[in-house]
Simulated assay, not measured.
Amino acid sequence: MKDAVEAVATVVETDKPEGIRLQKVLAAAGVGSRRHNEELIDAGRVRVDGKVVREQGRRVDPETAVIEVDGERVVTRTGLIHLALNKPRGVVSTMSDDQGRPTVAELITEFGSHSGLFHVGRLDVESEGLLLVTNNGDLAHRLTHPSFGVPKTYQVEINGPVRKETLRWLRMGVQLSDGPVRPENVRVIDQVGSRVLIEMVLHEGRNRIVRRLMDEVGHPVQRLLRTEFGAVHLGNLRSGRARHLTRFEVGALHSAVGL
């Protein structure tokens, strides 16, 4: 009798379905209520690993499944943190500094322990603006790898006037000591007296690339602010503050680098 009970228990355990119901995974990822997610599935708007799912109750592994809603990636891995930080001037783009300078880690204490978190790319100590912070190593690696060319937008304050020939030179590309650099877009967005504000979009993140570029064309940077990193915009985030990325921002970043 005992052997029979143990055998039944083994069968029950073996037949236990694996994974979590898709609508529950979507709800946990912030897509909507379970009922709303069931409607999305019924409408054929949800894909799992590239295939449309219409089956209610389909179970998935949120750690490994690639889930999309209306073609937009929904990141469902647990324990991931994705932050946007408005780094002030004078803060070092590092989690610790042996010289005692203020660091990125000191600005994100409200989000808990910074153990495992790291910044994506860098902004030099005098530069300001958008810096991504995460514990998602796969995403961070791809976002900073030059082969993916994720665009970054900067506002560059310089002393003018700026000649049309200089703008044309920037748009055509400038040869630096470590190779050429060609911004995707360069335009003057404001000019007051001798102050000129230029918006520039780059697809690479070499060390001090914007400052070296402007030095080369004879207009050293007076102030440098990064306003966009891929699909993430600085918006009205105050200097020194951080926020969680939205589900849509995280999904767009993953899609941009093929994850």
Score class of each variant (00 low, 15 high):
residue 67 I to L: 10
residue 53 V to T: 14
residue 30 G to D: 07
residue 37 N to W: 02
residue 79 G to R: 14
residue 67 I to F: 03
residue 78 T to V: 14
residue 38 E to A: 03
residue 63 E to D: 12
residue 44 G to H: 10
residue 42 D to F: 05
residue 29 A to T: 09
residue 31 V to T: 00
residue 64 T to G: 04
residue 30 G to C: 10
residue 70 D to T: 01
residue 73 R to C: 02
residue 72 E to K: 08
residue 50 G to T: 10
residue 59 R to G: 11
residue 42 D to R: 13
residue 56 Q to S: 07
residue 78 T to N: 15
residue 67 I to N: 02
residue 35 R to G: 07
residue 58 R to W: 05
residue 57 G to F: 02
residue 77 R to W: 14
residue 58 R to E: 09
residue 45 R to G: 00
residue 52 V to T: 15
residue 66 V to F: 09
residue 46 V to W: 05
residue 47 R to I: 02
residue 45 R to E: 02
residue 42 D to M: 00
residue 50 G to E: 12
residue 34 R to I: 07
residue 28 A to I: 10
residue 70 D to F: 07
residue 30 G to F: 08
residue 79 G to E: 13
residue 39 E to P: 00
residue 52 V to S: 10
residue 28 A to W: 14
residue 65 A to R: 05
residue 34 R to M: 09
residue 46 V to N: 04
residue 44 G to W: 13
residue 38 E to K: 12
residue 42 D to P: 00
residue 77 R to P: 11
residue 57 G to C: 05
residue 31 V to P: 02
residue 43 A to E: 11
residue 34 R to T: 07
residue 44 G to S: 07
residue 38 E to V: 01
residue 42 D to V: 00
residue 63 E to P: 08
residue 61 D to L: 10
residue 68 E to N: 06
residue 57 G to W: 04
residue 32 G to H: 06
residue 69 V to E: 13
residue 80 L to K: 09
residue 37 N to I: 04
residue 70 D to H: 03
residue 44 G to P: 07
residue 72 E to L: 07
residue 28 A to E: 15
residue 54 R to I: 06
residue 59 R to C: 12
residue 44 G to E: 05
residue 41 I to S: 01
residue 38 E to H: 07
residue 37 N to L: 02
residue 32 G to L: 07
residue 78 T to K: 15
residue 37 N to E: 09
residue 50 G to Q: 12
residue 59 R to I: 03
residue 76 T to K: 06
residue 73 R to K: 13
residue 78 T to W: 14
residue 51 K to G: 05
residue 62 P to D: 07
residue 29 A to D: 11
residue 58 R to P: 02
residue 45 R to Y: 05
residue 42 D to H: 10
residue 70 D to C: 02
residue 35 R to W: 14
residue 34 R to A: 04
residue 71 G to I: 03
residue 61 D to M: 10
residue 77 R to K: 15
residue 51 K to L: 08
residue 31 V to L: 01
residue 68 E to T: 09
residue 49 D to R: 04
residue 34 R to P: 03
residue 41 I to V: 08
residue 65 A to T: 03
residue 28 A to C: 15
residue 72 E to D: 07
residue 46 V to I: 10
residue 28 A to S: 15
residue 59 R to V: 05
residue 72 E to S: 06
residue 50 G to A: 11
